[in-house]
Write a protein that binds this DNA or RNA. Sequence first.
DNA 1: GTCAAATATTCCTTGAGGAGAATATGTGCC
DNA 2: GGCACATATTCTCCTCAAGGAATATTTGAC
Lengths: 110, 110
Amino acid sequence: MTAAIALDVGTFAALGEPNRLRMVELLRGGPRAVGEMAEALGIRQPQVSKHLKVLGEAGLVSVEAVARRRIYRLEPAPFAAMAHWVDSFEALWSQRLDAMGDVLASLDDA
Amino acid sequence: MTAAIALDVGTFAALGEPNRLRMVELLRGGPRAVGEMAEALGIRQPQVSKHLKVLGEAGLVSVEAVARRRIYRLEPAPFAAMAHWVDSFEALWSQRLDAMGDVLASLDDA
DNA sequence: GTCAAATATTCCTTGAGGAGAATATGTGCC
DNA sequence: GGCACATATTCTCCTCAAGGAATATTTGAC
């Protein structure tokens, strides 16, 4: 029995800041060094480091030192936890999607 | 082709507050009036109303007036958007889960 | 060891947001 | 119309977090 990974509020709090969400979207394309992210996002390096610290404390990213650069990558666990959590809300929209299906069908007919 | 519902940072920001997350978890069990939520969570009514306002502005809840009470319920759309978004990260952990599968298998053996 | 590149940390200022208390608004009841 | 219940709004205080600028730290190159 896989103990469901607990979802932390901190995950949402960390992602609830625009620049941090952008950073996560960027890291979605693969690991990056701090400087690359700063340039790609048009944010000053210190801010990037600070946001990475927050993301790290939330467990969303991990670091690997390569030469004098630090490569950050997304950490799967919190995302898996989020997926599990939000999927448990599926009952919320599944019934409504039935009704919405009719609407979409009628649109397809047009 | 279903136009993917855009995920808003505000969704995370709204859920990134402990009491608001608790309120969402509570509403997960069905629609509730303000007073019920206040009592169930041990939060004063004005705070509940304020948090509901934030949740409403983020599109996470909707209201229905019944007599002199206001029934709040979860709104499916943002949760569906979150589910879609977080699922797009699946590639992140799917490979690692292969490796993790071996670990889990070895644990099962023990 | 010295210098330069890459990143982290500190200090400061400012603004946003949450809690508490009081009050306003709305709505049904008689 | 007046009253009581349910909810929303306002105000104040306070804490925290984000951005900017400067600086410290680490590490590689020579």
